[in-house]
Amino acid sequence: MVSQLQSSSKLIYPESDGKPMADNTEQFRWIVIIQQNLDWLFANDPNVFVAGDLLWYPVEGNNALCTAPDVLVVFGRPKGKRGSYQQWQEGNIPPQVVFEILSPSNKLTEMNKKQVFYNRYGVEEYYLYDPEHSDLSGWLRVDGALDVIDPIENWVSPRLGIRFDLSGPELQIYRPDGQRFLSYVEIAQQAEQERQRAEQERQRAEQERQRAERLAERLRELGVDPDQITG
C-alpha cells in the first residue's frame, strides 16, 4: 500500500482505528488473559511496556501507516499512559513481541498484511492464536526476517521466558516460575481462598490465645503463678 507522506508538525495520529477491540467473548478473553498476565509478569520492571489494542505508528509523518496488535510488549521503554505508540518518540524502539488472537471475521489477507508489517518494522517475536481450533503459530526473527517457529509445542519465548503448552483442549501459557497464566476470575478465586485461609488461621490463633488466658486464670485461682511455669 502506497501512502503520501505529510511533513506538517501538526499531523494528527489518531488513537483509534474505529475497529472494536474484539469480535466475540473468546477473542476478548484471550486478549485480556495475555495482556494482564504479561503486565503482571513484568510489573516490577519499570522499563517493560505492555499494552493491548494500542495503535502503533512506526514512521513519523505517515499517520496512515499503523496497526493495533492485540497485545504488544516493548522492552526498554517505561510504563505509562499512551494514546498510541509513536515509535520515533520511544527511542525508535519497535515492539519486540506481539500477539494476535484470531476471530471468525479475520481474513487471510488482513493477517498476511499484519505479518508483513511486523516483519518490516522490526518485531522479534510474533504469535498468532486461534482459540476456536486451539491452534498457535509463531515467528521468530532470524537473520533479519521473521521465520516460522516449528515445532511450537512447549516453545519458550526468548524475550518473555513464557512457555506455550498445546497438549490440552486449549492453549496454556506458563510463566518462567512454572505458574500458569490465569484469568481474572481464577486470580480472584485464588485471592479469596488465601483470604479465607488467613482468616481461619487468625481465628485459630485467637482461640488458642483465649484458651491460654483461661488456663492462666484458672491457675491463678489455684494459687499458681502461670508465669513461673516452664515447659
Rank of each mutant, 00 (worst) to 15 (best):
L5A: 12
F117S: 03
Q210P: 13
Y121F: 13
P131D: 04
N106A: 11
L171H: 08
P14W: 00
P14T: 05
T230H: 13
K114V: 09
D225P: 01
D165P: 01
R204Y: 07
D143A: 02
I229H: 07
Q203T: 14
E213G: 10
L182P: 06
G52D: 13
E217T: 15
Q210D: 08
K19T: 13
P104E: 02
A145R: 04
P58A: 00
Q96H: 03
E199S: 07
E60Q: 09
S137F: 03
D225T: 05
M21V: 12
E199A: 14
R195H: 06
E217Q: 14
R197L: 12
N154Y: 12
F117Q: 03
P94T: 02
I93R: 01
I93S: 01
Y129C: 07
E26P: 09
P95V: 07
V116E: 10
Q172L: 13
E208I: 14
Q36M: 11
L160M: 06
D45I: 11
Q27F: 05
R82S: 06
I187P: 08
E213M: 10
S157D: 04
E132N: 08
A216G: 15
D227W: 07
R120E: 14
L166C: 10
F99V: 03
I101H: 02
Y174M: 09
S8C: 10
G76M: 03
A22H: 11
Y184T: 14
E201T: 12
L160P: 00
Q96Y: 02
L171R: 07
V50I: 14
G144F: 02
F42G: 05
V156C: 09
R214K: 11
F181T: 02
Y184C: 06
Q36D: 13
Q87F: 02
S137A: 10
R120G: 08
S157C: 03
P94S: 06
Q27G: 15
L166P: 09
W88P: 15
Q203W: 08
C66P: 00
G178L: 04
Q89R: 10
N24D: 14
I152V: 13
L140V: 01
I101Y: 02
Q86C: 12
E60C: 03
P158W: 09
D143E: 08
G168Y: 12
L219Q: 10
E60G: 06
D143V: 02
L72E: 04
Q189G: 01
G223K: 05
L219Y: 01
E194C: 04
A191S: 11
Q96W: 03
G80T: 08
P169I: 15
F28V: 09
Y174N: 07
I93A: 01
L38K: 05
F28S: 15
T67S: 05
L182Y: 00
V50G: 02
N92F: 07
Q228T: 14
S134F: 03
Q190T: 10
K107H: 10
I93Y: 01
S105E: 06
K19Q: 09
N47V: 12
A51Q: 04
L219P: 12
N44Q: 13
L140K: 02
A22S: 15
Q6L: 11
K10D: 15
C66Y: 03
P151V: 00
S16W: 00
Q210T: 11
S9A: 12
Q172W: 05
Q35P: 06
V142R: 11
Q207S: 05
N154M: 05
I149R: 01
E170V: 14
Y118P: 01
E90A: 13
E26F: 10
V73S: 00
I12Y: 06
M21G: 08
S9K: 06
Q86F: 00
W40M: 13
V185H: 04
